[in-house]
């Protein structure tokens, strides 16, 4: 591979890692700040990506055997182009709102459960979302997926240059979300969330409505994930139910947050780059190492190795805002006895 090929690959890699960074930030609002064990990221990811895709894709074309009923075609509407592709921001916003609504509804159902029960309930929610998109052909073309999703500013720059532009866009949005998350975390609202993470009963006793704060944090994290889903849809320009399997769309993101250090926004983004580097970088290893099946094995081994070598994540929790006593422990229900609820 020549130099420009390597550079193009690196840019493509950085775009995906940046998008995963957005998801890791959203998960950090759930788990790192508030201690909500959300194992259903794929649900918010899918809702965000499909909302963006359906709003911007061209209407279904019977000649292409497309079975879905609605395509918003926002990208072709004159008043949303104006030279700067305004529709892109409408799409991101709508994706965030859709994911937020899902989180609000699911939050009322599940946020009162103990964390391990909540995690498994959220896995179920995410699978339900995925199976609906898979089986309801009229909604989103079923297993064929949507593949005519427009790219941001793609008509205004040459294809070679487009990836650089999109990388810049993703990084700017990632930086904005990072700043919003940090501000929220350091605000009085963020302090309440951390107090809930440390000790729900104590927060409740101090007169805080724990359930309401949890719903708010859940919605905020989900909105971030929904925006990530839209960024993903406009980058890959193809969404199908296969993309949102529990492994690829939930647990890999968890691995990113935990590898980087939970509770730490910088760690979340670093973890996204490290884990995505392991995931996609192993294909360049020589000989047997580039075999797809061996890679899968290696990825698992590397994730295990990171945890055995550094159980607190690479950066560890953010010292300034870590839990009281600032041990290298992850947030709540840590330790063999802490995880046991009474029977």
């Amino acid at each position: 591979m020549d130099l420009s090929g390597i550079l193009n690959y690196l840019v493509g890699f950085a775009i995906m890692a940046g998008i995963y960074g957005v998801f890791a930030l959203g998960l950090n609002v759930h788990w790192g700040y508030t201690g909500i064990l959300n194992a259903g990221i794929a649900g918010f990811f899918a809702v965000g990506a499909y909302t963006a895709a359906l709003l911007t894709t061209q209407p279904p074309d019977p000649l292409l055997f497309e079975d879905f009923k609605f395509g918003g075609n926002l990208a072709q509407m004159g008043f949303l182009r104006l030279g700067i592709d305004l529709w892109f921001f409408v799409s991101l916003g709508a994706a965030g709102v859709a994911a937020g609504i899902l989180a609000w509804l699911m939050g009322f159902l599940t946020l009162r459960l103990r964390s391990d029960y909540l995690a498994i309930a959220m896995v179920g929610v995410a699978e339900t979302v995925r199976l609906i998109f898979l089986n309801e052909q009229w909604l989103a073309n079923g297993s064929k997926g949507l593949y005519r999703i427009p790219g941001f500013l793609s008509e205004w720059v040459t294809p070679e240059f487009h990836d650089y532009l999109y990388l810049a866009t993703v990084l700017i949005i990632l930086a904005l979300l990072f700043m919003v998350s940090e501000l929220a975390l350091r605000s009085p609202w963020g302090r309440v969330l951390r107090s809930i993470r440390e000790d729900e009963t104590a927060a409740e006793a101090s007169g805080k409505n724990v359930f309401r704060f949890k719903v708010q944090a859940f919605v905020m994290g989900a909105v971030i994930m929904g925006i990530g889903g839209a960024l993903f849809a406009h980058n890959v320009r193809f969404v199908s139910p296969l993309t949102f399997s529990p492994l690829l769309a939930t647990f890999v993101i968890w691995a990113m947050l935990i590898v980087g250090g939970s509770g730490n926004n910088r760690g979340a983004i670093l973890g996204a780059f490290v884990v995505w580097g392991i995931w996609s970088g192993t294909q360049f290893m020589p000989g047997i190492f580039s075999d797809a099946n061996f890679r899968f094995f290696m990825i698992g081994v590397l994730i295990v190795a990171v945890f055995v070598i550094r159980p607190g994540g690479i950066l560890g929790p953010d010292r300034r805002i870590a839990r009281l006593g600032a041990s290298s422990q992850p947030p709540p229900t840590a330790g063999p006895s802490g995880s046991k609820g009474a029977g």
Binding site: I303, A334, S339
Partner: peptide
């Protein structure tokens, strides 16, 4: 004394 989440992710 790694926590619940580290074990699960491992």
């Amino acid at each position: 004394r790694a926590g619940l989440i580290i074990m699960t992710m491992t």
